[in-house]
């Protein structure tokens, strides 16, 4: 057997990466789409009037109050404009999501492997998975105080449930012969767990992470609406109180922007982590 034999049945290699980069028309469609978004928004303003401030007003509010704002201080917000609040909410969402994701992934993969873990976690997940996590928020505020911690714990709980369900499903979707093949090669349970189940479920885990992170921003913000003195939710509710709709939408827009960026980074990470995936499998 020589090399030539093997290359004969080699597939034509699709080398997208090495192809010369041509300016793709896709980017024009995206730019056009963004323009359309602002046009429709402006038209909406012209029709509705004061209740929907035009994009430039909202952007102006977001920019002028970004780092420092006497106006915000006048409203009773801590000094420093949007910035410290954005940082606080981002911290809550990311940390909560990360902690929950690790726990949920471990319990999910664990219950796919062991019936005991499955039976222990099932009723807990059934309860936490069906009760809208928001209902639990006031409990957290009472138990852990109106603090950063209760927000983080809330987000972590939600993310853990989501990742648990995704991890469980990921292993179910993984063909059992992968694990069997590993075991005939001498792999023990731990080896199968971390060399087969874990990497094999990475694509679906990223799906779960995306869902959890997407919801984390809103969860963090609404706990801030309920209490705590920091966070973009606080800005939103405060500016809402004085009917300053432009500043309110400014906060919302900034939060959405961060969410979009975080999501894009997550997708980049997914692409890097799933280079082995056949095209079009996800």
């Amino acid at each position: 057997m020589t090399d030539i034999d093997a290359t004969r049945d080699a597939m034509p290699v699709a080398d997208k990466a090495t192809a010369p980069a041509r300016p793709s028309p896709e980017i024009w469609w995206t730019l056009g789409g963004i323009a359309l978004f602002f046009i429709v928004w402006t038209l909406g303003h012209l029709v509705i009037g004061r209740y929907l401030p035009p994009p430039w007003q909202v952007i102006a509010a977001a920019v002028t109050h970004f780092f420092d704002s006497r106006y915000f201080v006048g409203l009773g917000l801590p000094p420093g404009g949007y910035w410290p609040h954005l940082v606080s909410t981002t911290y809550t969402a990311l940390l909560g999501c990360a902690v929950g994701a690790v726990i949920g992934t471990l319990t999910g993969l664990g219950s796919a492997h062991s019936n005991v873990i499955h039976q222990i976690t099932r009723p807990i997940v059934a309860i936490l998975g069906t009760v809208p996590i928001l209902v639990a928020a006031p409990f957290f505020l009472i138990w852990f105080g109106v603090s950063e911690n209760s927000k983080i714990i809330l987000v972590a709980f939600y993310s853990a449930v989501v990742l648990h369900l995704y991890a469980l499903r990921a292993v179910e979707h993984l063909h059992p012969s992968f694990a069997e093949s590993a075991s005939t090669l001498g792999a023990g349970p731990w080896m199968i767990f971390h060399r087969v189940s874990l990497p094999g479920s990475v694509p679906e885990l990223f799906g779960g992470l995306r869902a959890a992170l997407g919801a984390a921003w809103g969860l963090a913000a609404i706990t801030e609406l309920l209490g705590t003195d920091r966070g973009i939710g606080r800005v939103i509710i405060t500016t809402w109180g004085v009917q300053d709709i432009a500043s309110m939408m400014g906060g919302l827009l900034l939060l959405a922007l961060i969410a979009v960026i975080a999501d894009a980074l997550l997708m980049l990470a997914r692409r890097a982590a799933t280079r082995w995936m056949p095209e079009g499998a996800l």
């Binding site: 896709e26 469609w29 789409g33 928001l134 609406l225 979009v260």
Partner: peptide, 21 residues
């Protein structure tokens, strides 16, 4: 393709934070 960016933003905009709006 033209509406894709708006839809993406609508999905990424945290729903619960929009209640006051």
């Amino acid at each position: 393709k033209l509406v894709a960016p708006s839809l993406h933003l609508a999905r990424m905009c945290p729903l619960l934070a929009m209640i006051p709006l």
